[in-house]
Amino acid sequence: MPSRWIATFDEPALVAQALTALADLGVPGTRLVSPAPYRAVHLTGQPGPWRAMGWLVLGGGLCGLATAIALEVGTSLAHPMHVGGQPVIAWVQFGVIMFEMTMLGAGLTNFLAMIVLGAWSRRQVAKAARDGLRSDRLTLAIPTSGRSPEQLQAIRAALVGATGIEEAP
């Protein structure tokens, strides 16, 4: 018994239709490989690490802010200079660099988080499906292990519009 089917489609609308039908059949774990963020990528129902992104970015921004404060306050105390009658620790003047480094920390964290979480999450998708990425087609990986022949027939019927269905380990 093969562990999954790899179904290819030409049109994003047909993939969305297939995903809806598979969800109605109660087939969990279906994954999609797509050349673009079509609406169908939101229909696989996979809980993903992306939910953490906002918090990670907030943390990165706060790290940037802390770095700016440490740099400005620490070095101003180490090399106290009175310029133009301003205090050595001048929070208003420090605000600009604090803002810039907060944003820089948030941006860098966002990028790194996307790369690292993306690398981690893509391993859960069958390599045969990932290798099939092309700009003119979409690929569905449907787990079929432990399914009865009737269920497999229903799944095949749900994949109406697929240009090809292959079995993959």
């Binding site: 994954r31 999609l32 490989v33 797509s34 050349p35 963020p37 990528v41 939101h42 696989t44 996979q46 993903g48 690490p49 992306w50 992104m53 906002g54 970015v57 803002f99 944003m103 948030a106 941006g107 966002n110 990028f111 988080a113 996307m114 790369i115 979480l117 993306g118 690398a119 999450s121 893509r122 859960q124 998708v125 499906a129 990932r130 990425l133």
Partner: peptide
């Protein structure tokens, strides 16, 4: 960087990209 177009990567991308755009504007 190994981007493969999986649904989870696109969902990550669609979460990260607006965050980045939100950082870039200010």
């Amino acid at each position: 960087l190994g981007f493969s177009g999986t649904d989870s990567e696109w969902n990550l991308f669609e979460r990260a990209y607006p965050l980045f755009a939100g950082v870039a504007i200010p």
